[in-house]
Measured scan of single mutants.
Amino acid sequence: GTVKVQGITIKVPNPDKAYKIAKKLAKKYNLTVTRKGNTIKVE
């Protein structure tokens, strides 16, 4: 899958794990995490 952070896309082998990490970071930096299948977008 991929993770998008402010325009940066990161390929990740485990979208579930990445999503959990993204959620933690999002809370810390007051961002929104959206997930569509293997693509995770943080904005």
Rank of each mutant, 00 (worst) to 15 (best):
G1E: 06
G1T: 06
G1D: 05
G1N: 06
G1I: 12
G1A: 07
T2H: 09
T2Y: 14
T2V: 12
T2W: 15
T2Q: 10
T2E: 11
V3L: 12
V3D: 04
V3A: 05
K4I: 15
K4V: 14
K4D: 09
K4F: 14
K4L: 14
K4A: 09
K4G: 05
K4P: 06
K4W: 14
V5I: 14
V5H: 14
V5M: 10
V5Q: 05
V5S: 05
V5T: 05
V5W: 15
V5L: 12
V5G: 05
Q6G: 15
Q6H: 14
Q6C: 15
Q6Y: 15
Q6L: 15
Q6A: 14
Q6T: 10
G7P: 04
G7R: 07
G7Q: 06
G7N: 07
G7I: 13
G7D: 05
G7C: 15
G7Y: 11
G7W: 12
I8A: 03
I8N: 02
I8S: 03
I8F: 11
I8L: 11
I8V: 09
T9C: 15
I10P: 02
I10A: 04
I10S: 02
I10V: 08
I10T: 02
I10L: 08
K11E: 09
K11Q: 12
V12M: 07
V12T: 05
V12H: 05
V12P: 04
V12W: 07
V12E: 01
V12D: 02
P13H: 11
P13I: 12
P13N: 13
N14Q: 03
N14H: 08
P15I: 15
P15Y: 09
P15C: 15
P15S: 10
P15D: 03
P15G: 07
P15Q: 03
D16R: 09
D16L: 11
D16H: 09
D16A: 07
D16F: 12
D16I: 08
D16K: 10
K17F: 13
K17S: 10
K17N: 07
K17P: 00
K17Q: 12
A18Q: 01
A18I: 12
A18V: 10
A18L: 12
A18S: 02
A18D: 00
A18Y: 10
Y19A: 02
Y19R: 03
Y19P: 00
K20Q: 11
K20E: 11
K20M: 13
K20F: 08
K20W: 13
K20L: 11
K20R: 09
K20V: 08
K20P: 00
I21V: 07
I21P: 00
I21S: 02
I21L: 09
I21F: 13
I21A: 06
I21C: 15
A22D: 00
A22T: 02
A22S: 03
A22N: 00
A22L: 15
A22W: 15
A22E: 00
A22R: 03
A22K: 00
K23D: 01
K23L: 14
K23E: 06
K23N: 04
K23Y: 06
K24V: 10
K24A: 13
K24E: 08
K24D: 05
K24H: 10
K24M: 13
K24N: 07
K24R: 12
L25V: 03
L25S: 00
L25W: 13
L25Q: 00
L25R: 01
L25N: 00
L25P: 00
A26E: 04
A26M: 07
A26R: 09
A26W: 10
A26F: 13
A26K: 04
A26C: 13
K27T: 05
K27Q: 10
K27Y: 11
K27V: 06
K27R: 11
K27E: 08
K27L: 09
K27N: 07
K27C: 08
K27P: 02
K28C: 15
K28A: 10
K28V: 12
K28S: 07
K28M: 12
K28E: 05
K28I: 14
Y29A: 02
Y29G: 01
Y29V: 03
Y29E: 00
Y29I: 03
N30E: 03
N30S: 07
N30F: 12
N30A: 08
N30G: 13
N30I: 06
N30L: 08
N30T: 03
L31Y: 06
L31P: 00
L31H: 03
L31M: 08
L31W: 11
L31K: 04
L31V: 08
L31F: 11
L31R: 01
T32G: 02
T32C: 13
T32I: 13
T32M: 10
T32K: 13
T32H: 07
V33T: 01
V33N: 00
V33S: 01
V33I: 10
V33G: 00
T34E: 04
T34L: 04
T34F: 06
R35W: 10
R35H: 02
R35L: 07
R35Q: 03
R35S: 04
R35E: 01
R35M: 07
K36W: 10
K36P: 01
K36R: 13
K36D: 12
K36N: 10
K36G: 02
K36T: 13
G37F: 06
G37L: 02
G37K: 05
G37R: 04
G37C: 05
G37E: 02
G37Y: 02
N38Q: 06
N38A: 05
N38M: 06
N38C: 14
N38G: 05
N38V: 05
N38L: 05
T39A: 08
T39N: 07
T39Y: 10
T39K: 05
T39Q: 09
I40H: 04
I40Q: 02
I40D: 01
I40A: 01
I40Y: 05
I40R: 01
I40P: 03
I40V: 06
K41C: 15
K41N: 11
K41D: 06
K41P: 00
K41I: 15
K41L: 15
K41H: 13
K41M: 13
K41A: 08
K41R: 11
K41W: 15
V42R: 01
V42I: 14
V42P: 00
E43I: 12
E43F: 14
E43K: 10
E43R: 11
E43M: 11
